[in-house]
Amino acid sequence: DIIVVALYDYEAIHHEDLSFQKGDQMVVLEESGEWWKARSLATRKEGYIPSNYVARVDS
């Protein structure tokens, strides 16, 4: 799995977006363009995230 960590807070604009806080970790489910589908490890919610707001966690 690709794990990313939030670099900034993000408040969902559309209902399919995923809100998150700086430091939150998410599993990337699908990478396509600038918006990635991800699942929050904390809340288990899924939605689209702006890929420029996150960084990959080296395992």
Rank of each mutant, 00 (worst) to 15 (best):
S19H: 04
D17M: 14
F20V: 03
V5D: 02
I2Q: 09
H14W: 10
E31D: 15
Q25R: 15
V28C: 05
D24C: 04
D24I: 02
E34H: 15
V28T: 03
A42C: 10
E30K: 09
T43A: 04
E46C: 11
L18H: 02
S51H: 10
I2D: 08
G33A: 06
V5G: 02
I49D: 01
A6K: 01
K45F: 07
E16L: 12
D58G: 13
L18T: 03
H15M: 13
S19L: 02
I3E: 03
V4D: 00
I49G: 00
E16P: 04
Q25K: 15
D1Q: 14
K37T: 05
G47C: 01
G23Q: 02
E11Y: 11
G47L: 01
D9I: 03
R44H: 15
T43K: 04
E46I: 11
S32A: 11
E46V: 13
Y48E: 02
A42L: 11
V5K: 05
L41F: 07
P50S: 05
E11S: 10
K45A: 10
V57S: 08
A55L: 09
Y48T: 06
I2T: 10
D58H: 12
R39K: 09
G33Y: 05
R39F: 11
S59H: 11
E30M: 10
S40T: 07
I13L: 12
L18Y: 02
I49A: 01
W36H: 05
Y48F: 12
D1L: 14
V4P: 00
Q21L: 12
V27D: 03
K22V: 09
L18E: 00
K22D: 02
P50T: 03
L18F: 05
M26Q: 00
Q25E: 10
Q25S: 08
T43Q: 05
D17W: 13
Y10I: 02
E46T: 12
S40K: 11
L18V: 03
E46H: 06
E31W: 15
P50Q: 06
H15R: 13
L7A: 03
V27A: 07
A55G: 07
V54M: 05
E31V: 13
W35C: 09
P50N: 11
L41A: 06
A42F: 07
E46Y: 06
L7P: 00
Y8L: 09
A55N: 07
K45E: 13
Q25V: 15
E31L: 14
G33H: 05
Y10H: 06
V28R: 01
V4M: 05
